[in-house]
Design a protein around this nucleic acid. Structure first.
Length: 300
DNA sequence: CAAATTTGACCCCT
DNA sequence: AGGGGTCAAATTTG
């Protein structure tokens, strides 16, 4: 990823200005003054919520842009995938870019994040590439990579494991950046994907266009400590004490739908995910679409 | 038939 | 040696 160091600052500046504008509108509404409608927001609870959401988003993204400007080098090296040395059975040309969790941890990989969620949905399209029984763990760990790994070279990955302490909760560990939607091009992810088991709804189900990965209401907690990625369940423990407290403000489905209609740009979309990768974000990725997928993989 | 998932095997690390 | 992450052939699904 290459970006001029001043670009994030400019973006942050724009975002702060946008956020301030929204704050001004909100203030006017609260004071009962006449205010121009922003995004259709009016002096209603819905309108207030919309404005506050917008303000918060702008602030968060601005912060992320600024942080990113100071840590780009780290992020580049951190999220990068190190190739293993050529292995037996692989030709030099097709030697896969395998990664080792230990290698990443040892190298201080950034861009890892653990979330406790009620759903595996996060707005991105993931492709399952593995499943492993974890020693001492009741539930298997599922391995996903971005569907657009091949098309866009997106190296985002995630691991999903059902919490033993809270079976209704998924511990999702994210690795790497989503580079599949950073360009000016239209974001590739325009579908909701439901990961299910092979025995039933094994194939992803395509539904209505999902909201942009930004705020969500099913993120219970987010742990931004990369080390936790080693073993989310172990390190998170049975409770929530070890997890940095983070409770997402709930967002209605209608809000999400509206958000999805926002103009797509890196600041409105994938930047949210960058923030996660920076481990500094105050909000999670993805949105809650529904709970209609099967948990059989993790139930066993 | 193309794309996604499953699952056994391989490899690295401790 | 064993655990964990990833690959890739086989299988399944739409």
């Amino acid at each position: 990823m290459t970006m001029a160091s001043s670009a994030p600052a400019c973006a942050a500046s724009e975002l702060v200005a946008r956020g301030r504008e929204s704050a001004a509108v909100l203030q006017a509404l609260l004071l009962g003054q006449q205010a121009p409608a922003v995004g259709g927001a009016g002096a209603t609870p819905h309108g207030f919520r919309e404005l506050t959401d917008q303000i918060l988003r702008c602030c968060d993204r601005a912060l992320a842009a600024l942080r990113r400007s100071g840590t780009e080098d780290d992020a580049d090296s951190g999220a990068g995938v190190r190739k293993r040395k050529p292995e037996r059975g692989y030709s030099s040309s097709d030697s896969p870019a395998r990664t080792s969790k230990r290698m990443r941890v040892r190298a201080g990989e950034r861009g890892t994040r653990v979330e406790k969620r009620q759903t595996m949905e996060d707005g991105f399209i993931w492709r399952k590439y593995g499943q492993k029984e974890i020693h001492g763990s009741k539930y298997p760990r599922l391995y996903f990579r971005c569907t657009y790994k091949d098309d866009h070279g997106c190296m985002a990955r995630r691991q999903v494991q059902r919490s033993e302490a809270e079976p209704s909760v998924f511990l999702i560990t994210y690795f790497g950046d989503h580079t599949c939607c950073r360009d000016d091009e239209e974001p590739p992810a325009q579908f909701v994907i439901n990961f299910g088991s092979s025995t039933s709804a094994g194939q992803p189900s395509i539904g209505s266009p999902p909201p942009r990965p930004s705020c969500n209401d099913d993120v219970l907690e987010v742990c931004k400590t990369p080390d936790l990625c080693n073993s989310p369940e172990d390190e998170l423990g049975s409770g929530t004490d070890n997890v940095s407290e983070f409770i997402e403000q709930s967002i209605s489905v209608s809000d999400l739908t509206r958000m999805s209609s926002m103009d797509w740009d890196p600041l409105n979309g994938c930047l949210d995910y960058w923030m996660l990768c920076d481990g500094e974000s105050s909000f999670g990725i993805g949105e809650f679409i529904g709970h209609d997928f099967n948990y059989l993989d993790l139930l066993q």
